[in-house]
Design a protein around this nucleic acid. Structure first.
Lengths: 245, 245
DNA sequence: GCCGTCCGGTTGTCCGGACATTTGCATTGA
DNA sequence: TCAATGCAAATGTCCGGACAACCGGACGGC
């Protein structure tokens, strides 16, 4: 069964993207079974009325996603495993929502403070200058799950408390026209201090999962510095990553 | 200063790769300053005697690495931040070696066991079938740092104990011709059990950082299932990640 | 029987060109 | 003064072709 593929030349969607989406859907749906050859590029191009570079561009995007493997002299195969998402810059809010948990957020602090040494270094602003400080408690099923402290450079975003509770910080940044580009993360663990234990309803000294992150936009500005603590029984970091060839 | 670029057409190294390496070196070296425009593709191609698709391929590879940002109608800019490595499938051994720590490994167990339900599911082998089991203690500066339990499918690798102590598991796999492709990870935290506490010279109940990982090769086979525990004062996960556009 | 060579098939690289789309700026108009 | 228009510049998309490099199996020689 030669797999039904079509492209719409009148659509504004790029042809290579139409093709890659259809291939991805076929893989997801199981029409293209793992391990099977994809048929050679030349013939595929001819069948679709496309040029080979266009077909290659479509295939390449799926190779980058880890769904396909090319082997010179052999062909292009569907990867066998259960590859899903190759680790994106995850937002806790989106993660929870995707898991159907309907997250709740309680903003504890939303103010402007003077930047300490660590925050100033992370955000690349002068020490002592004003920065936003947001402290939030993230709840799932009414139970506290994570305590989030974030610092943001001034003038970047209108940090409305109501909006912070209704949605996530990353979503607010994106809709403010900020293009997130990269982030530097550090994940660790430590025992809860008395204050942390109290906030997360854990005993003092209980193991906590910690994450520290600086996020940059595509101009290289640091747009956020976060220091998060999670209750390990309720949250862990799950992700998939690809070996860059 | 128009940046000296050259390509060697007699070299077997692809032209686009030669160019991307030179650009990357220039960025690393600071010759191309962050935020600066890269000059348009047409002119760059003409200057080097290359075609535009070749130049675009070189630039695209650096965009994928997060070093450059393209903007239609504007140009290609060098990203401002300190982007280094976009998170590879890290080997603890390599990480430590890169940090100049000269890691030591003590193989505690190296045997064949019957696969339990969890291991069998992860490696996609029948429950009860034989699998390799390796337990290692990783030391730095003579102090225990991590306790590593790994399960491998049978017949994949010759698990020589001496070699396991002299190098890392991933390095052994690679030199055995296995092409690592992707991995699924889960990072969490919990309190140490009595046995774990003893092995890592921590008090019982002390916070531990945990990582569980299944690694696949490019044919989709699961080649390794690992369950690791780290002393959080001595190790944390540091990585950089990119937002996929 | 075993090993090396040849060959078909497939992906990798590269070219030169064409047109579309978007952006930022200058110009023009109200 | 301010907004709309037009223009130049840059990247985005797409084409058709050519040759190279590599893999696997078939074939033949030893």
């Amino acid at each position: 069964m030669p797999l039904e593929l079509r492209v719409d030349r009148s659509s504004p969607v790029p042809l290579y993207f139409q093709l890659s989406q259809q291939l991805e859907a076929a893989i997801e749906h199981g029409t293209l079974t793992p391990g099977s050859l994809l048929g050679n590029e030349i013939e595929l191009a001819a069948r679709l009325g496309l040029s080979r570079p266009t077909v290659r561009q479509a295939i390449q995007s799926l190779v980058d996603k880890g769904l396909l493997v090319r082997r010179r002299g052999v062909g292009t195969q569907v990867v066998h495993s259960q590859v899903k998402r190759p680790l994106e810059l995850s937002s806790l809010y989106d993660d929870l929502e995707a898991a159907g948990q309907r997250p709740a957020t309680k903003v504890l602090v939303n103010t402007v403070v003077s930047a300490g040494a660590e925050v100033a270094a992370a955000l690349a602003v002068p020490e002592g200058s004003d920065v936003h400080r947001v402290e939030r408690l993230r709840l799932a099923h009414g139970e506290p799950m994570a305590y989030l402290v974030n610092h943001l450079p001034p003038g970047l975003l209108d940090l409305d408390t109501g909006q912070l509770e209704a949605t996530g910080l990353y979503r607010m940044m994106r809709s403010a026209g900020i293009t997130l580009h990269s982030a530097r993360q550090s994940i660790g663990a430590r025992g809860a201090t008395a204050a942390e234990a109290d906030r997360l309803t854990e005993p003092e000294g209980a193991p906590l999962l910690t994450m520290r992150r600086t996020t940059y936009d595509d101009t290289g500005r640091a747009v956020e510095y976060g220091d998060h603590t999670y209750r390990p029984a309720r949250y862990s970091f799950e992700f998939q990553l690809l070996v860059r060839p």
